[in-house]
């Protein structure tokens, strides 16, 4: 017993080391922007850079669009499949698995080949970016909504509402969505975490997003990228923390179920 526990602690300690050492190194490095003293100069530089705010807001905007489009696309469909077309479910799952088969580079390559002629309009490029993000977040959105709907008895809820005279929009808006709140928020935060720092699509579609800005900083500066990495990490952490917090005490549905 004591021996196994020693090894358990050993592996956990190793994991903690692996997890925190790079973060510690980055943090330490980010403080060295000024010679011979530790300072937050790098963070100041980053925050004072107008490009930072610009690109960050752009990505945030894209994330919000992605979440909206994702919800509008996924919720009614999954609801409908649960209610009326359970036979379609395998195909839904197939579609949502596609991002695992088609890596982001390939996806964006295809999107460009197909829609490049339309990119003369700026908004078109952005729309395609959002569409790409929706595709990337599809597995997570679908899984959390699917799990959420499975946890409640969709059919009885719907029939109860119908028998009380509710119309379809009312049912979706007043009954299904509120019950899905936790699932949707989890999906939304995960999407946020993915989209904000996303590099592949944004960079290859030549969009002024936060990810390409990060990469650019990495090529031109020394200490600011470290500061940016720490900030991105804090952001990911916040999003995951919120998901965990939302998932507390809910039967059968933390974000973990969405991951495998």
């Amino acid at each position: 017993m004591r021996v196994t526990r020693f090894w358990s602690w050993f592996w956990i300690a190793l994991g903690v080391l692996y997890f925190f050492l790079p973060l510690y190194a980055t943090f330490q490095f980010s403080l060295k922007a000024q010679r011979d003293t530790l300072s937050f100069l790098a963070y100041q530089n980053v925050l004072n850079d107008p490009k930072f705010a610009e690109t960050f807001l752009f990505s945030l905007q894209m994330a919000v669009w992605t979440i909206l489009v994702g919800v509008v696309l996924v919720v009614p469909t999954v609801y409908w499949v649960h209610l009326r077309l359970p036979a379609v479910r395998p195909y839904m799952e197939l579609v949502t698995l596609m991002p695992f088969v088609i890596p982001a580079v390939v996806l964006v390559f295809g999107l460009i080949r197909t829609y490049a002629p339309l990119f003369t309009w700026t908004w078109m490029g952005r729309a395609v970016l959002v569409a790409g993000y929706v595709v990337l977040s599809l597995p997570y959105m679908y899984r959390s909504v699917d799990a959420g709907l499975r946890a409640m008895d969709v059919r009885s809820l719907t029939e109860a509402a119908q028998s009380l005279g509710a119309s379809w929009p009312t049912i979706l808006w007043r009954i299904i969505l509120p019950n899905l709140r936790t699932a949707l928020l989890s999906g939304a935060f995960l999407t946020l975490a993915i989209v904000i720092g996303e590099f592949t699509l944004a960079s290859l579609l030549a969009q002024p997003a936060f990810g390409p800005y990060l990469a650019l900083m990495g090529q031109n500066r020394a200490y600011e990228p470290a500061a940016l990495a720490i900030m991105s990490f804090a952001l990911t952490w916040a999003a995951m923390g919120l998901i965990q917090w939302l998932g507390r005490g809910r039967p059968g549905g933390s974000q973990l179920s969405g991951t495998h």
């Binding site: 994991g15 050492l21 190194a25 330490q28 990495g218 990911t236 998901i243």
Partner: peptide, 27 residues
């Protein structure tokens, strides 16, 4: 919780973190 965070912490910032750790002047 850590796994949830770390599995989503990829891309450019992750590269920065490892440059600061194992790069030529990394910690």
């Amino acid at each position: 919780t850590f796994s949830g965070v770390a599995s989503n912490f990829a891309g450019v910032p992750l590269a920065f973190a490892f440059i600061a750790t194992l790069g030529r002047v990394g910690l």
